[in-house]
Computed example of a mutant assay.
Amino acid sequence: MIRLLIADDHPVVRDGLSAMFAAEPGFEVVGQAGDGAEAIQLAETLRPDVILMDLQMPGVNGLAAISGLTERGVTARVLVLTTYDTDGYVVPAIEAGATGYLLKDAPRDELVRAVRAAADGTSVLAPSVANTLMNHVRTPPTPDIVSPRELEVIELVAAGNTNREIAAHLFISEATVKTHLLNIYAKLGVPDRASAVAEAFRRGLLGAAG
């Protein structure tokens, strides 16, 4: 019996996955988490064999949760299930300790097979994700990783501005600020604002800007 924990911030997704696996022989859904912090807590308590982990969740996101699980010595295999297949998401997730990486449009049978494989310690990657990893290995990183607008946003974050203040300063909506931040996190391979600022300084993006 494969003990499964599902981590996703959308209740309808969690419920749908729970119902799907409950109907499959050999699976027991032992818990659901709505964010990364809850996923870590439940993983330590429930000791699942496999965790289906979304990446974009409020608070502690999936990437930070994978790192946290690794740091705590949790032995559950983490299978990322997300809509993002760019190298800014794929590479950090694999580096953090994810066993596999699938997209949410994966067919039911493929997802079931992937969870079984993950439980056995076998890495499973969606075809587009495998291509992304290959391209990442073959292509040297570009120094101009963030756009000029994204650089403006990260500069304002570094100066201590809130999303609302950034929106007012740049004459854009808060939703657009959040979108820019998500893009920045993905491009820099970081989970949050503080890490983004630190990484931007490390890469010389903020230093170069003055």
Rank of each mutant, 00 (worst) to 15 (best):
V13W: 00
Q32W: 07
M20Q: 05
L170Q: 05
D54K: 00
A168S: 13
I166F: 10
G121T: 01
P92H: 07
T99I: 14
R138I: 15
E38L: 06
E150K: 05
T75S: 12
N131P: 02
N61L: 04
L102R: 08
N161F: 13
A200V: 06
P25I: 00
I145D: 07
L46R: 15
L55P: 06
I172K: 04
E152L: 11
A114W: 06
N135G: 14
A117P: 03
E165L: 10
I6S: 03
A43E: 07
L102S: 10
A19I: 08
R77D: 11
Y101K: 07
L170V: 03
L206Q: 00
V50F: 02
V60C: 11
A196G: 08
V129C: 11
T86V: 09
S67V: 11
T99E: 13
G26H: 03
E199K: 15
V78E: 06
V146H: 04
L42W: 08
N161Y: 14
G207R: 11
R3Q: 12
E28R: 15
M20I: 03
F201V: 15
E150T: 04
A117Q: 13
L102F: 10
E174D: 12
A200Y: 04
A39V: 07
L63T: 04
H10T: 11
A158R: 07
M20Y: 00
P148G: 09
K187N: 10
R77Y: 10
L182H: 14
S128C: 09
I2R: 01
E38Y: 02
Y84K: 12
V190W: 02
R72S: 08
R202D: 11
I145M: 13
A19G: 10
P25M: 00
P191R: 10
A98T: 02
V137Q: 07
V146T: 10
A114V: 06
G189A: 08
D85K: 08
A118P: 04
G160V: 10
Y185I: 05
R14L: 01
R113L: 12
E152G: 07
D8K: 01
V112F: 03
V190A: 07
I2N: 02
A208N: 01
A39Q: 06
V115R: 09
H169T: 14
A96M: 08
I66P: 01
S128Y: 02
A126P: 03
P143C: 06
L156R: 14
G160Q: 09
I154W: 03
P140M: 10
D105V: 12
E165F: 08
L111P: 02
R14M: 03
H136G: 03
E44G: 14
F171P: 00
V115Y: 08
R149I: 12
D87P: 08
Q41F: 05
P191L: 12
V153R: 04
V13N: 04
G31E: 07
D87Y: 09
V91N: 05
A130E: 15
L181Q: 15
N131F: 09
V13I: 14
S173Q: 01
V197I: 13
L182D: 14
L151R: 14
L181F: 09
A118M: 08
I51C: 02
T132M: 02
V137S: 08
N163I: 05
R14P: 04
M134R: 15
R138W: 11
M57N: 06
V60M: 15
E28L: 13
L63S: 05
V30G: 07
R203V: 05
F21K: 03
A37E: 14
N183I: 05
P191K: 11
S195P: 02
D15K: 11
A175T: 15
R138T: 12
